[in-house]
Design a protein around this nucleic acid. Sequence first.
DNA 1: GCCAACGTTGGC
DNA 2: GCCAACGTTGGC
Length: 156
Amino acid sequence: MARAYWLLKSEPENYSIEQLKKDGTAGWTGVRNYQARNFMRDSMKLGDGVLFYHSNAEPTAIVGLAEVFKESHPDPTQFESRSEYYDAKSKRESPTWMMVEIKFVEILKRPLTLQELKQAKGLETMQLLRKGQRLSVQPVTPDEWKTIVKLAKTGR
DNA sequence: GCCAACGTTGGC
DNA sequence: GCCAACGTTGGC
């Protein structure tokens, strides 16, 4: 199967691309939205490309690349009663929340701000740019991926 | 199964 | 900090 592509949002105050670079890999814990979970559980495969996006940031931007390092497995924080992600209804025999792990690839030479992405040719239908789109895990098309990687390399 | 109330996300 | 958009909850 061909490599697929994704966009993951993170608030840099919570977890930034710089931190991912330091850590090398990161478990994507704490996702508590069913649609986002389904993407991680069903569709994200080893080696898939990941755009790392800083939300609630100055500026909001795609800041780096990563890839799927470990496919779907249960998010342990759902069972940790002291975690802010604790879910009392989730059972160990049938965990509600799944996660993947990602591996750092690179920090973009320059961040691609939301503003710039909105103006870029070829990204008009990108999910991230759709009004009201709040999903923290989103699919990215191969064309969008290509466009974004090229934008990051070439300046503009 | 509808839908109002409430909570969360995230750009600005 | 505001608030629009969306998801979830729970009464009926």
